[in-house]
């Protein structure tokens, strides 16, 4: 370990690691892309279901709402690291391995589903009941109400929810990375912590800071453009 690490040397070390940093960024991107896609495709409809089965809503159903709500709370109760370990058999079944970003995407997706479902439910609650009722009075079908009214009116809030989810899961993906998923967080731990290359740790944290700022900025910007309220 270098007692007096010069800036020049630190930069040189980092530039030597450039291919690995790139590789780690791709892995993080892959984990996020899979996790977020599953969250949207599965968690989105689940959130809509949670909303529509509430008392006073289109498909008010105490039993369905209770069961789905209970399941969502259950999964969300698990600390992520424990969820990951307990899903190892499922991961092995689905991916055939528990190592690598694709394998890490399994518990990430699993955790992202109920998280996004709750965010979607909360966002939809902001739509005035009267607007939905007006659509009912005009003869809109449930599918038309979901697509045209709920998603159309909540679109800015849904983008904000997705922004929150993305940033939360960027840090979850670092945890997943450490137990074999790879990615930026894993690189930071391997070089910065285990090999005492503090400059790698610092650079990776800075990289994450920049990514988070970009995601938040893009999310805010898009949400503001979509919001005509």
């Amino acid at each position: 370990m270098d007692e007096q690490l010069t800036l020049a040397q630190a930069l040189a070390n980092l530039s030597d690691l450039a291919p690995e940093i790139w590789q780690a960024s791709v892995e993080t991107g892959l984990m996020l892309a899979i996790g977020l896609s599953v969250a949207i495709v599965v968690g989105g409809p689940l959130g809509i279901l949670l909303y529509l089965t509430q008392p006073g809503q289109l498909f008010a159903n105490r039993a369905v709402n209770g069961v789905v709500g209970w399941f969502v709370n259950l999964v969300r109760s698990f600390p992520f690291i424990i969820l990951m370990v307990s899903l190892v058999p499922l991961t092995r079944l689905l991916v055939g391995s528990t190592i690598g970003p694709i394998a890490a995407a399994v518990p990430l997706s699993f955790a992202a589903i109920p998280y996004f479902a709750r965010l979607v439910e909360q966002t939809l609650r902001e739509i005035p009941r009267g607007v939905i009722e007006a659509a009912e009075a005009m003869g809109a079908s449930p599918a038309q109400i979901i697509w045209k009214v709920l998603l159309g009116e909540a679109r800015a809030g849904l983008i904000s929810s997705l922004t929150i989810l993305t940033i939360s899961f960027l840090s979850y993906s670092a945890v997943a990375g450490v137990v074999g998923g790879g990615g930026i967080g894993d690189l930071a731990i391997r070089y910065g912590y285990y090999r005492f290359q503090t400059e790698v740790m610092v650079a990776m944290v800075l990289l994450l800071v920049v990514i988070v700022q970009i995601i938040q900025f893009a999310g805010n910007h898009l949400a503001a453009r979509l919001d005509k309220r």
Binding site: G130, V131, A134, A135, G139, V149, G152, E153, K228, R229
Partner: peptide
Amino acid sequence: QNIGMVFQQFNLMANRTVAANIAFPLEI
């Protein structure tokens, strides 16, 4: 679709333009 309704609180869709609000029942 043969019975229009007008509300005290208007109940327009905030993210649709005036024209798109009026188009809504026709799209349906």
